[in-house]
């Protein structure tokens, strides 16, 4: 079969809503795009543990500490589900993880912001996990089977993440004036970076159309962003939190909430590596990776010796 015919046959499978499995014939570009997108997603789950992990030892109560520990552990799991799915595309775990720690691979820009107070932990659960739910619910219908299945697993856990944050923020927002101020301040800082999580505007997102044509995604960045805003406005109102956007207004014609211009210059700066925490995040990841190397080696060596002993005994 010539290349065009193969491409057409593949496109036909996608258009029929078929699921693509690891050993199936797939265009090189589809495989490459998936590796890029999925590993970026997996790195985000792992790096995303850092801003929250920052507060585990300073949680305001034992209850909140247990909740945060469980949530951060889930995020580690999310990273592992997706790495396991990426590996079905013929890359090793090691090359994939080293590609963001020492190479050019990216993770979500949102995790390059600092967590200054415990209110940030509330807001991350509500907004950041809330945005992740919007994105991941779509990806659970992705054309690549292993990716879609990892998303189904993840989505089951995300509602706990969002609810614990929202509940905690509601409590804080109905507390003392200082607590209220703290809650609002965190929302003010996280609102715009959260909207950036859906990626650049459609006219500046070269990958989007291709990913949609191949059924990896089914909605554009701007569509996802809009449904997130629509979902969040009333949630904010219900707990007396203000969204820091003077242009936010319900549009009776479209049935959607219109919102102001996202500060895209800031987004591109963070992507380039100049966000407040980019260097710190990579430093922390490298440190963990390098300082854990001897543990991985020791475990390998232990397994090798045990295997040898077993062979001798038999």
């Amino acid at each position: 079969m010539d290349e065009q015919k193969q491409l057409d046959a593949f496109q036909k499978r996608i258009d029929n809503g078929e699921t693509i499995e690891p050993k199936d014939r797939m265009p090189d570009r589809y495989r490459k795009q998936l590796i890029r997108m999925m590993s970026q997603h997996a790195h985000s789950e792992i790096v995303g543990m850092l801003p929250e992990g920052n507060w585990i030892q300073r949680a305001p109560s034992l209850k909140r500490k247990k909740v945060l520990l469980a949530k951060v552990q889930d995020e580690a799991g999310h990273g592992l589900y997706i790495y396991s799915a990426v590996e079905t595309l013929g890359v090793t775990r090691r090359e994939v993880v080293e590609d963001y720690m020492y190479g050019n691979a990216k993770y979500s820009s949102i995790f390059n912001y600092p967590t200054l107070t415990y209110a940030d932990i509330c807001v991350i659960g509500w907004l950041v996990d809330g945005a992740a739910i919007v994105n991941q619910t779509m990806l659970a219908r992705s054309s690549y089977g292993p990716y879609a299945r990892s998303m189904v697993r993840i989505c089951k856990e995300e509602s706990f993440h969002k609810k614990q944050g929202y509940e905690m923020l509601a409590k804080m927002a109905s507390g003392t004036p200082e607590q209220k101020k703290m809650a609002q301040d965190a929302v003010n800082r996280w609102w715009w970076p959260t909207l950036m999580m859906f990626g650049p505007p459609d006219d500046q997102s070269p990958n989007s159309q291709e990913l949609i044509r191949w059924g990896v995604k089914s909605k554009t960045n701007d569509e996802l962003r809009q449904s997130f805003v629509d979902m969040t406005v009333m949630e904010a109102k219900a707990i007396g939190i203000e969204i820091p956007d003077p242009d936010l207004k319900y549009n009776h014609e479209t049935g959607h909430w219109d919102f102001g211009e996202v500060p895209w210059d800031e987004f591109w700066e963070v992507i380039k590596g100049n966000g407040p925490m980019n260097r710190e995040r990579i430093r922390a990841r490298r440190k963990a990776y390098e300082e854990g190397a001897w543990v991985r080696e020791a475990a390998s060596e232990y397994a090798r010796k045990k295997r040898l002993e077993e062979e001798k005994a038999s």
């Binding site: 592992l80 292993p146 390998s300």
Partner: peptide, 28 residues
């Protein structure tokens, strides 16, 4: 240097057949 890859299957409930979950890396 990489730990070998293992495929994971789990039985969701008593009496149900095993299902594929994903994979993990482990030395043994």
């Amino acid at each position: 240097n990489e730990w070998p890859l293992w495929e994971v299957f789990y039985q969701p409930k008593d009496g149900k057949p095993f299902e594929h979950a994903g994979s993990v890396h482990a030395p043994d």
